[in-house]
Design a protein around this nucleic acid. Sequence first.
DNA 1: TGTCGGCCTTGACGAACGTCAAGGAGTTTG
DNA 2: CAAACTCCTTGACGTTCGTCAAGGCCGACA
Lengths: 202, 202
Amino acid sequence: MIVLSPTLEDLSAAQAAFSRFMPVDAEMFGTMSEFAQTVVVPKGTLWVEQGRPSTHVAVIVEGLFRAVYSSDGDDTTYGFYYAPGFVTEYAGFVRQTEARLSIEALEDSRIVQWSYPAIQHLYSLGPKGERLGRLIAEEVFVGFMDRTMELLLYAPEERYARMVERGSSLLQRVPLYMIADYLGITPESLSRIRARMLRKTS
Amino acid sequence: MIVLSPTLEDLSAAQAAFSRFMPVDAEMFGTMSEFAQTVVVPKGTLWVEQGRPSTHVAVIVEGLFRAVYSSDGDDTTYGFYYAPGFVTEYAGFVRQTEARLSIEALEDSRIVQWSYPAIQHLYSLGPKGERLGRLIAEEVFVGFMDRTMELLLYAPEERYARMVERGSSLLQRVPLYMIADYLGITPESLSRIRARMLRKTS
DNA sequence: TGTCGGCCTTGACGAACGTCAAGGAGTTTG
DNA sequence: CAAACTCCTTGACGTTCGTCAAGGCCGACA
């Protein structure tokens, strides 16, 4: 992992990500830029390690990450993160406790990150900073609600079918055993589900 | 549902709930009290109805609620809410869109509620209001992360076993078919799981 | 007291999933 | 070029789940 000063493109990608939630004026953009770091994360690197501090939140300029929970030597893929969007081990970050998940780069990635003190500083600047933090937390929340609903409402086969219908780019970018994991099933089961679906459409 | 002016006990229960997240000073407490309403919700009432606006957020003084998603005539129990804690159809509330879930009182309940404009007013008072909103959103988020993790990591039988170990009061207060639903299985399967667990311990 | 309705259990059966094991295709590495 | 590795698939088998159906328990209520 290499830490750099952000380029203008990095900063504008970051601003675009934040702008999806609320307008970012010149002053806030300036403050953000001042504390931002660009990080180049090679494929396979753990940007956050389970059990260690979760110190940063980042905007993904390019690349792909997964959140993974490890226990007794086996991994569970909890979620994926890609541009344009955020990546962070949120639970640990907001409470400044140790990360409960690792976050691993699945492709060579480039992110713009802020430390916890930098974010606190942003909050301390006034209601606009707090507001941005709140809006992002709420948005992230709604995303997780969808995820939980998917697991509760649909059987494994339907979950995969819906992912295909949605045209998720993950299906092209991620090995199937991680998709299986994400859907809550084994790779063998996903393989059989795919075989069944092929038989039906042909 | 009967709407009343909050009693002092109602307000102090509300303050206690908020205090779990950050100190609430006299000024903020005053503003909160000014806009608060107490609502008596009889068992069986839908406090929020799926498809209609999600207008309020509330602190539970006493009672029990469940969030339920209805589709094609069958229901899925999404979560439970009880004192001391909050209840709201959060996704609809924060975005002021229609509720995606209904929220039903499972016991005769008493809550202290705030409307969306009241909360916005609280936010507009300065960083402390925004901060409180953000902290609550983050806390709610971590809870949902736990919920999703439970569904991904554990098989149905383990999910029930963990609920028993945790000593959840829900097991005493809620019919098993709702528990089954909450765990993502059918009532029949939960019944068999209970039978299996009894055989093992005896 | 008898009946009704809500809730839990049990049975039977088929379908889907998990596990263990083996094999094949494509890519990387020496 | 061959060997090693990663990833996906397929097979066999046992277990668990969902569904449909029936029956029992218990509190509510006339």
